[in-house]
Design a protein around this nucleic acid. Structure first.
Lengths: 216, 216
DNA sequence: CAACTACCTGACCACGAAGTCAACAAGTTA
DNA sequence: TAACTTGTTGACTTCGTGGTCAGGTAGTTG
C-alpha cells in the first residue's frame, strides 16, 4: 500500500507532471490576478506562491499574457453557463429564482473568477472583447427573447429584458466584487453563508415582485 | 480686448499656475487610472496626455501613490453625498426614487470616479479601507436605520436594509462599471442618455414594487 | 542501456518606470 | 532692479520585471 503510493508520488509520469503543474499554476495565477489585477501581478509572485521557480512558470506558459488569457478563457464559460438554462417554457418564477441562486453561488464559489471578469470589463475588456461580441452576445439576445416571451404570455410585466438582466447580473455579481466592502460595512471579517443566502433571497423577492410575477 | 486676454494668458500668477496645473493633472490622472488601473498607469502616460514633462508631474505630486490617493480622496465624498439626503420622514417612494436617479447620474457623469472606486474595492481597497471603516460605515448604518423606520411605519415590506442598499448600489454602479459590456451586448458604441434613463426607471420600478412600496 | 524527449532551473539580459537632481526660467516683492 | 520664491525640465540613477538561454536532470521508448 504504502509502497504503491510512494512510487506513485516519486515516479510521476510526464503527462501527470504536466497536468498537475498546469493546474497548480492556473489556480495560483487566478488567485493573484483576482487580488492584484493583471499589471499588479508578477510572475515571480505566482512562482513563489506555487513553490516553483519563475523559469518553470515560463516553461509552461511562454508569456504572462498567455497565462492570463488561459485563466480568462475558463471564466467566460463559467459566467455564461447558467443563463442557458432559462427557457420560455419555464415559468419565470422558477427560472429567475433558480438563475439568481446560481449566480450568487458563483460569486461565492468562484469569487476569484468573478472578480477577474469584473476587472476585465472595468478596464475595457481588452482581452475579452471578441468573446463578448460573439458568444456572450448570442446568449444574451436569446435570453432577452425568452424574457420577451414571458412578457407576451403575461407571466410578468412588460419591462426591458436587457436592463433586467443587467440588474440581476450586477446585484448578484456584487457579492463577489464588493463582498469586501459589504463585510466591512457589516462589521465582519468576510461574508458568511447566511449573507449569501439572505442576499439571494432578497434579490429574488425584489426581482419577482418587481417584475409583477405572481409568487404564491 | 485681445490685449487683456493675451496678458492673462501670458502672465499668470504663481497661484493660478499652481491651481491650474494641479487641476489638469488630477483630471488626466483620473482618466488614466480609471482606464488602466493603478499599476497599469504610468506617470509618463499622464504627463504625455497632460502635455507636461514627467518631472513636472513629480514636482506637484511627490510620488505616484500620493497622486493616486489625492484622486481617490475626492471619490468617496462624491460616492457618499447622495445617501445623506434620505431621511425617515420622507416617504421611501420619493426618497428611493430620487436616490436611484442620483446614483445613475453619478455613473454617467462621474464614470471615471465610479470605476476607480470599483476597482479599488475589487482589489481589497488597500488605500480606502480606513475611510470605509469609518466615514462610509457611519453613513451606512444611519441609512439602514432610516430604512428600518420606514419598515416600522409599514411604508414598505420588512427586508434587510443592508442587502437592499447593496442591491441598489450595485445595480446603479453597474452603469459605470459595466457600461462597456452593456453597450457591446446592445450593439452600440456606448450607452446613451436613454439607456441611463431606462435603467434608472427600471431599477426604481423593480425596487419600489419589490419592496412593496405603494406607488401612485 | 542508449538515444531521445520532456521537464527543470539559475544566471543573465534588456527595458521601462519611478523617482532624483541640478541648473535654469519665470514670477514676486522689497 | 536685486534678492527671493516658485515653477520647469532633461539627464541621470535605481530597481523590478518579463523574458531568454544553456546546461542540467528525470522520465520514456526502442
Amino acid at each position: 500500500m504504502n509502497d504503491t503510493k510512494k512510487s506513485v508520488v516519486k515516479r510521476r509520469k510526464s503527462a501527470d507532471i504536466r497536468k498537475d503543474n498546469l493546474q497548480l499554476i492556473l489556480t495560483v495565477a487566478e488567485q493573484r490576478f483576482a487580488e492584484y489585477g493583471y499589471n499588479g501581478t508578477t510572475i515571480s509572485s505566482i512562482a513563489e506562491q506555487a513553490n516553483l521557480p519563475k523559469s518553470n512558470i515560463l516553461y509552461y506558459f511562454k508569456t504572462k499574457e498567455v497565462l492570463y488569457k488561459e485563466v480568462l478563457s475558463q471564466i467566460l464559460k463559467i459566467w455564461m453557463v447558467d443563463m442557458e438554462e432559462m427557457t420560455a417554457e419555464q415559468h419565470p418564477k422558477e427560472a429567475l429564482r433558480h438563475y439568481i441562486l446560481l449566480k450568487i453561488r458563483q460569486s461565492k464559489d468562484h469569487s476569484n473568477a468573478s472578480r477577474i471578469f469584473a476587472s476585465e470589463l472595468l478596464h475595457g475588456a481588452p482581452f475579452l472583447r471578441d468573446k463578448l461580441q460573439t458568444d456572450l452576445k448570442i446568449q444574451f439576445i436569446s435570453t432577452c427573447q425568452v424574457i420577451r416571451e414571458w412578457i407576451a404570455k403575461q407571466w410578468m410585466n412588460p419591462i426591458s429584458p436587457e436592463h433586467l438582466l443587467f440588474m440581476i447580473w450586477s446585484s448578484t455579481q456584487a457579492y463577489a466584487d464588493y463582498g469586501l466592502q459589504s463585510s466591512i460595512l457589516m462589521g465582519k471579517a468576510e461574508l458568511d453563508d447566511d449573507d449569501f443566502e439572505t442576499g439571494a433571497e432578497l434579490i429574488t423577492q425584489i426581482v419577482l415582485r418587481g417584475c409583477g410575477i405572481k409568487q404564491l
